[in-house]
Computed example of a mutant assay.
Amino acid sequence: MNINKIHHVAIICSDYEKSKNFYVNILGFKSIEETYRKERDSYKLDLEVGDFGQLELFSFNNPPERPSYPEARGLRHLAFEVDDIEKSVKELEDNGVKVEPVRIDEVTGKKFTFFEDPDKLPLELYEK
């Protein structure tokens, strides 16, 4: 098997419009295509992340909650690379997003921080 890259990450939202606003208007991801699936009464929004990745946002009626804290087994967090972490943190905070203090990765020496999406999905900014 020869896997080239991660194609997309799918996120099920509790409030589709709130999450759509967060990922499009606050994080700045470009909408590729939005699809309403009548048979599921569900929306799917494909978002462009940089030049090589995609996020898919889904709406479902009454999705079950996923435990996050204390850390549960499974996906720990989703990380996004940025050029200037301080500028990115300020943009998030200016939009009312609570951001943890910036830390330094002990292995790489790079700056990083964590914040949450509207469903408390742990997200990370990692400086290039």
Rank of each mutant, 00 (worst) to 15 (best):
E56C: 11
R37I: 15
E86F: 10
K44M: 15
F22L: 04
G28H: 05
E65C: 14
K30H: 08
V24G: 03
K128Q: 08
K38E: 15
K44W: 10
H7C: 10
A10G: 08
E124G: 00
V24N: 08
E39A: 12
G74Q: 06
Q54N: 11
E127A: 05
F80Y: 08
I104M: 08
S59V: 08
K5Y: 09
N95D: 08
F115W: 04
K110A: 13
E39K: 12
P118D: 04
Y36W: 09
F60Y: 13
I32Q: 08
I12N: 02
R66M: 14
H77A: 04
K111C: 07
E48A: 13
L45Q: 06
V24F: 06
P122A: 06
F58H: 12
L121G: 04
K38G: 11
F60A: 14
K87A: 12
E65R: 14
F60Q: 15
L123W: 00
G50R: 01
I3N: 10
D51L: 08
L121V: 10
P64Q: 14
E39R: 13
A79R: 04
A10Q: 03
G53C: 10
Y43N: 13
D105H: 05
E65H: 15
F60R: 11
D84I: 05
S19T: 03
T113P: 00
S42G: 10
Y16H: 01
S42F: 05
E81M: 14
H7A: 12
V99P: 00
K87W: 09
N21E: 14
R40G: 13
R37T: 15
E39F: 11
E17M: 07
F112H: 05
I11W: 01
G74N: 03
N4W: 09
E86R: 08
K18E: 09
S42H: 07
Y69H: 15
I6S: 02
N62E: 15
R103M: 12
L55N: 06
I85K: 03
G109L: 02
L78W: 07
N2D: 14
E33Q: 14
I104P: 06
G50F: 07
V9W: 05
C13N: 00
R37K: 15
K87H: 12
E39M: 12
E81K: 13
K20A: 03
K120V: 07
E33C: 09
H8E: 07
N95G: 02
K111Y: 09
K20N: 00
I3P: 08
K5A: 13
L121N: 11
S59H: 10
D84K: 09
C13I: 01
K90Y: 07
K98I: 14
N62W: 10
V49N: 06
L55Y: 07
D119E: 00
L27M: 06
P64I: 15
T108K: 09
G96Q: 07
D41T: 13
V99T: 05
K120A: 09
S59P: 10
V99R: 03
I11F: 04
S42I: 03
I85Y: 03
E56H: 11
Y43F: 11
K120P: 05
M1D: 13
L92A: 06
K38Y: 11
E56G: 11
T113K: 01
R73G: 14
F29Q: 05
S19Y: 04
L121M: 08
S59D: 02
D15K: 01
K30Q: 10
N95S: 08
D105S: 02
E33T: 10
Y69E: 15
